[in-house]
Design a protein around this nucleic acid. Sequence first.
DNA 1: TGAATATTGGTCAGTATGTGACCATTAGTC
DNA 2: GACTAATGGTCACATACTGACCAATATTCA
Lengths: 219, 219
Amino acid sequence: MGLEERRRREKDNRKQAILRAARKLFFDRGFKAVTVEQIARRAELSKGAIYLHFRSKEEMYTQILLNDIAAFQKKISTLLQSGDSPTDMFVKFSRIYIDFFLNDRELFRILMTFMLNTEQMNLPAQMNDHIVKATNKQAEVMEGILQIGIDQGQFPKTINLRRYRNAIWGLLNGIISLHLFTGRADNREGIIRSTIDDSLQVFLRGLASEVVKGPKKEE
Amino acid sequence: MGLEERRRREKDNRKQAILRAARKLFFDRGFKAVTVEQIARRAELSKGAIYLHFRSKEEMYTQILLNDIAAFQKKISTLLQSGDSPTDMFVKFSRIYIDFFLNDRELFRILMTFMLNTEQMNLPAQMNDHIVKATNKQAEVMEGILQIGIDQGQFPKTINLRRYRNAIWGLLNGIISLHLFTGRADNREGIIRSTIDDSLQVFLRGLASEVVKGPKKEE
DNA sequence: TGAATATTGGTCAGTATGTGACCATTAGTC
DNA sequence: GACTAATGGTCACATACTGACCAATATTCA
């Protein structure tokens, strides 16, 4: 009994403060360029204290990933209950997606990198699971929207959810990546937004037009 | 070099948190009725931790006194620069005095008790000095107002500052004490306020009327 | 009244948290 | 490919916190 609650709370606060400091630095300079000493200074701690809360620099990085993904999840989690049409849901989804990642390009970069190099990051299996689980949740929302579309007769009954979820996901990621590659986001937000909007509508229209036709094969 | 600044800040925060907890309890139940354990619990700490920040229960009590007196000082410290007439300054002074102590009767009780029993509380001499110094500051303001009155020709040039400062101080304290003794403040604020207002004006008028006459003897 | 019991201010040995000098390894330089 | 600099991670030491404990006092009750 006793004061554990307060101590737990304060320990957690400290941890969050470290993560805030680390996140800012990672965001500004990228993983490699940031030293643990810098993170410690920004958090007004010594380097040793950092290792009371995290096993390694990479673990910090991973937890930031988890936090940010969780924040994103929270944003999109209400979509399914909105009662909008599936198309509108996807449009809203993409808006959130864009807003979020244009506002946090480092996270986007990290996520894409993680997707591309899961093995290389050789994190503890448990961490890996967490991230995978988190991204799965995101996928679920997309599939959920597709399912609603199916239930409402807007999409074919027999489509492969995974395939089209991936298609839409890829569309978003691909366009954003391209955008980040070709230019700064600041003055081109309108372009990327309308590009995605338009592509998405085209894709969904295409999908809807198959309602009468037969199913796709499993991949 | 290093993180001392942050540690100092956090240590001070902790100390203030303890004082807040202690103050609330002392205010509600009085010094004797409060146990150190209760203070610790309210501050979400163990009893032992309390003694890292304070040498004794009484030291806590004393520091609360100092804090509250300091807050009061701050309130009255601007009076001298207000440019009001001395009489108005005293009226304002008394308003602040009443507001403050009706809002914090325990502090008033404590202060009066301390004034009456400085020795009995046998605090470290240094602490004693602090409190005495603080109350002296308060006295200074009153003497300052009197001095302004003298400079402006409203009060006799030769009055004994200490005597009249004490008279006014005593007037305020006495009426408030009486009031606390005879009834609850809530529904009698108007009465105590007008009583003090009126008595104060009478006293100051009396003092002003002596401008032409000779000085009082030193006491 | 005075012995038994309960309460509580204060202590201290043990634990958790934080510090910074240090080390091993790797990256960079010439 | 030897030398230097930078940096992730470690550890002995320092500080903050905990709670069982004790001595002294207050309370209860026969």
